[in-house]
Write a protein that binds this DNA or RNA. Sequence first.
DNA 1: AATGGAATGTAGCGGCTGCTACAAGATCAA
DNA 2: TTGATCTTGTAGCAGCCGCTACATTCCATT
Lengths: 175, 175
Amino acid sequence: MSEIASVRADKRAAVLTPICAHLLNEGLDAANLRALAKAAGTSDRMLLYYFSNKDDLIGTALTRLAEQLSALLDEQIHCEPQPEEVLTETVWTAVCHPDCWPFMVLFVELAVRAHRIGDPFASPAQAIAHHFQTWLADHLAIDDLERRSAAAERVLTVVDGRVLLRLVQATAIKK
Amino acid sequence: MSEIASVRADKRAAVLTPICAHLLNEGLDAANLRALAKAAGTSDRMLLYYFSNKDDLIGTALTRLAEQLSALLDEQIHCEPQPEEVLTETVWTAVCHPDCWPFMVLFVELAVRAHRIGDPFASPAQAIAHHFQTWLADHLAIDDLERRSAAAERVLTVVDGRVLLRLVQATAIKK
DNA sequence: AATGGAATGTAGCGGCTGCTACAAGATCAA
DNA sequence: TTGATCTTGTAGCAGCCGCTACATTCCATT
């Protein structure tokens, strides 16, 4: 019956949370089935029982992460529409917050893979970029639609550029 | 004798050119020893004879690529110092040129790995970013040193941001 | 209790990766 | 020519990867 959710579907959903966390903290390079399974307290065998293959798993997790970022933005920033320069700094501050920063790093990884590989990375990357820009436009104190959209794109560009440069400067600790 | 270069040193230098090309066109993910050796017309065994290990090879190649990008910028753009907005568009046009674009993609890959892993990626990434910004400052029509440097950083930020967004939009062709 | 399907553990395959042991050829000084 | 050193090919190891075959356990229905 449809009202009786199978164990499989339940676990599939449950397992997604720690997997998203792992993806966020360790990045896509570290995202192999055995490591993800360990993070989720299960086995790689089970992950491939819940999901049809690795791409399905990663794609599902990334889609969920894209939604999480959207929610995070709404949650972390409650402000009236602002002028372009002000919004840029407001968002930049939010982006540097420890809760948000891992999303931005992941987004950069996603962008490269979207370009080089395509799916399952392209769709979430585009979703994140698109939603981010829409969100920015909604928080800009500009009446004209076209100008508002163009300004949102400029803000997004500057923020992304700063993220990239910050990545280079804030380098991993060597062992 | 020091004037007699060994075969090893010669080949080590010669092999670097096709390896850099491979790195540039295929990215860091595809940079395994066997693939690089094939691109260089030799064997993985030989690459590890010329270089002490993979990190040494990649690090050397990346350093050379950083220098190549510097040369490319000088070569592709000969212009008088420009105001900030003009230089931004001049550089953006150059960056989108097929000769330069692969460098930018590689730079983004480098930035992520510099952040997550550190060396051998951090140093070349920082070199590229630093040289790029210096180059920009040299082409800005601003007298005051501090203002010029700040403007160069803004130009670099905008260009990098555009690169990132372009990556997401120009996605790989699916098979 | 019997049965059939869902859920899970065990073990391993085939492929790739960085790297190395070993031996053979190449080169050059004596 | 001999021997030492530099260069190179062959083969393979140990580890990781995505994925799967097989067997088992668990549970709901009958």
